[in-house]
């Protein structure tokens, strides 16, 4: 199911495949801090053309824990791209060195293009505002871990639903399960994009668009909060209008269900106040921690089956 395949969009996967990934992740949890020797001799290339902390480091940690090694394309200013090498040639080079390539790029469709060029499997670690499939895998795993299921839940996604690739991939990801209702909560200018709306219609997802979190908060089992993606606004004045338009605080969460979990792909800016960290709702640090075992499971499944 997984061996040798590319990971470009969460929608390329079936529910059963994600369930298999989650089962392997459960096993990997034991090894996330001490490692095992499954991938000795394997080399993973990380090529991040856009800044990344968590995703890059967790992929690198994952391969190291599995006994493999990684090579990392240096910052653009220090690599051959600074000399004018195009993307296709860079990918061809990495393909000749590595067993698997992890790509992040500001240009949309870059990972798909890389997958066409490379023989080695390609993992999309984020392309512009479109896809971030491995983040969605981590998000769904976290929900399953704390609620024991994804089916039947009321799931809210709050924030920048237009430019945020993590939010978009998460929305696509929940369509693979039989959730009860999807609440899309955002200021008007940051609503989901037309192609995402079409997809939700096609999949007959029970979803509702909402501007005020307060109105729907008591219904929610999961609240997925995202950062407003300042760097992707074509017009800075548009960003000024919506920045700081929502903030989750401890007192606000008093109106929520007791077992509501709050997720965030991180980094956060000021959309979740620090006093939320101490509540039982805050699961975003666990979510970040699962980044390594989920990616270990994914690398194992792609490289070994």
């Amino acid at each position: 199911m997984f061996k040798g395949r590319d990971v470009l969009a969460i929608t390329d996967f079936k529910r059963e495949e994600l369930e298999e990934l989650f089962r392997v992740t459960d096993e990997m949890l034991k090894y996330a801090k001490r490692g095992l020797n499954l991938l000795e001799g394997y080399v993973m290339a990380t090529a991040f053309f856009e800044p990344s902390t968590r995703t890059r480091l967790s992929f690198q940690t994952a391969i190291l824990r599995l006994g493999g090694k990684y090579i990392d394309l240096a910052e653009v200013s220090r690599s051959s791209i600074a000399k004018g090498e195009n993307f296709a040639d860079t990918i061809r080079m990495l393909d000749s060195y590595a067993n698997i390539i992890v790509v992040r790029h500001r240009i949309e469709g870059a990972a798909k293009f890389a997958a066409q060029i490379a023989e080695a499997p390609v993992i999309n670690a984020g392309d512009g505002m479109r896809h971030h499939p491995t983040q969605a895998m981590i998000d769904l795993y976290t929900i399953r871990k704390f609620h024991g299921r994804i089916d039947g839940l009321n799931i809210g996604v709050l924030g920048d639903l237009k430019y945020g690739r993590a939010a978009t991939s998460f929305i696509y990801g929940v369509t693979l399960f039989s959730i009860r209702r999807l609440y899309l909560i955002s200021p008007e200018p940051l609503r989901i994009r037309p192609e995402v709306r079409d997809y939700l219609e096609l999949k007959k997802i029970n979803s509702v668009e909402e501007s005020l979190l307060e109105k729907v908060l008591p219904e929610l089992d999961v609240l997925y909060v995202t950062r407003i993606q300042k760097e992707r606004f074509p017009d800075p004045t548009e960003y000024e209008k919506v920045k700081g338009s929502y903030k989750i605080t401890k007192s606000l969460l008093e109106r929520a269900k007791e077992d509501l979990i709050v997720l965030h792909p991180l980094p956060r800016v000021d959309e979740i106040s620090l006093d939320v960290d101490e509540t039982a709702h805050a699961k975003y640090f666990d979510q970040a921690r699962y980044g390594v075992p989920v990616r270990m499971a994914l690398l194992k499944l792609i490289l070994l089956g």
Partner: peptide, 29 residues
């Protein structure tokens, strides 16, 4: 979109999601 980047060996490609009215989706982005 990657298909609009200069100096990359790539051709634009669209999937037809509806024929009437016509609606296309870029295969890459």
């Amino acid at each position: 979109c990657i298909t609009n980047q200069p100096r990359e060996p790539i051709k634009p490609s669209f999937l037809v999601v509806s024929k009437s009215p016509i609606k296309l989706i870029c295969e890459y982005c």
